[in-house]
Design a protein around this nucleic acid. Structure first.
Lengths: 219, 219
DNA sequence: CGCACTTTTGAGGGTTTTCAAGTGCCGTGG
DNA sequence: CCACGGCACTTGAAAACCCTCAAAAGTGCG
């Protein structure tokens, strides 16, 4: 199979999830039904009517919840292939806010439309179930880190997973500010900064502004 | 509709999820295919081959993960109607351990069996999706508390949700030890104890051994 | 080139943990 | 029925960890 072609296939479809017939057009074509969003724009807003399911095609977004007093906790980082606002299938309102962290391309699909499509195309439901399960697994990972990990363990685990797709030792620019990382990890902005530099002091990684890279462990 | 009858309907089916044809027998009958478990027994074991989906009919269980060094974080409390080991539908191994906190009645259904049934009975997939989504939502709630809440907020929120089904002001025996609560809330055993008594000192609730009750707020 | 935002870094204080000892509850067995 | 033993719970003190507040330095975009 041609690698060039595979790379251009929609990341959602690549995971076996096909949300509607027209989605076929996504395969390398100029993006039927896709929208563009800038950093800071919202894909879903907590409490608002849940109208659309929003699969992410490219870029990063973060899902977050805000407490009545203004504190916010980020739940997970969404990457291409993840789906924002999947509660539009059942719930009347969105349960969390999804905010773009970088420029994002995403589809906007009416929840009802997905529902019908799932009923018609039986095969869709299982991959969809799988996506939601993976989402749950990702949240579970988050709980373990928040509940048991020290600041250093949380930061390390987060960065390790973020840089996983890139070759070891290469410089990668973290798309989140220290504050945003803190909201994901349940840490203060300054604690994140301090911890990153403590890891650098331990020769675990190297920092250069917002970019960093892991060093090979000596042992 | 007869209340007496409704009360005897399988709590899983009551949520619209029907996992197999024989499940009809569950409706008040002497429990075809149900198993009994004692406190401490495991319904799933992290890392083991994921063979069965285990809907809980009565009793409480808790889902937990263990880190390599022995620390454990509990993810959620499972109640009647919740489903343990749902990853048996897709994943090769269980992602977490589910341990009975009280005596438990549960079905054990082979994962493959559910898969076939879902494909045959199209209508099943949407309620099932809903259950998994609710599970994800519950984990998300957990993350918010772990990340942002103080010890007092976590304990209060946990107890409030646990006692929700019972009439306000009635004594309820908490089925978890302080240590088990701590593992759910990301707190030390002693912190839980201290915090419960601090809430009692603030006249929020009354403690009598392992039982407690909420007091009505004066304002 | 300048402004706005982000990051770094310091000091002090509060919350939670850890370690440890003592108390209470409950079921078992005599 | 009472005594005993084993958990679970309470409570104290000290220390570790992280947060808040705050100021200064760095970065990037217009």
């Amino acid at each position: 199979m041609n690698v060039e072609l595979r790379a251009r296939v929609c990341p959602v479809r690549r995971r076996g999830v096909e949300l509607r017939a027209e989605c076929e057009r996504c395969a390398g074509q100029p993006a039927a039904g896709q929208s563009r969003y800038e950093r800071g724009e919202l894909l879903c807003l907590e409490g608002r009517e849940a109208t659309h399911v929003v699969p992410i095609i490219s870029g990063f977004a973060r899902e977050l919840r805000t407490l009545p007093d203004g504190r916010t906790q980020a739940l997970r980082l969404l990457q291409p292939g993840d789906i924002a606002g999947i509660e539009a299938l059942h719930a009347p309102t969105y349960r969390s806010t999804v905010e773009c962290v970088t420029r994002v391309r995403a589809c906007r699909i009416a929840g009802a439309e997905v529902g019908e499509y799932v009923v018609e195309h039986n095969a869709v439901s299982r991959p969809l179930l799988r996506v939601v399960e993976e989402q749950a697994a990702s949240l579970a990972d988050g709980m373990v880190w928040l509940g048991q990990g020290s600041a250093e363990e949380r930061v390390f685990a987060f960065l390790e997973r973020l840089l996983q797709p890139y070759p070891r030792g290469s410089w990668v620019r973290v798309p989140l500010t220290r504050g945003e990382m803190g909201e994901l990890l349940g840490l203060g902005l300054s604690t994140v900064s301090r911890t990153v530099h403590r890891l650098a002091a331990k020769k675990v990684l190297e920092v250069r502004g917002r970019s960093l890279r892991f060093l090979d462990r000596p042992e």
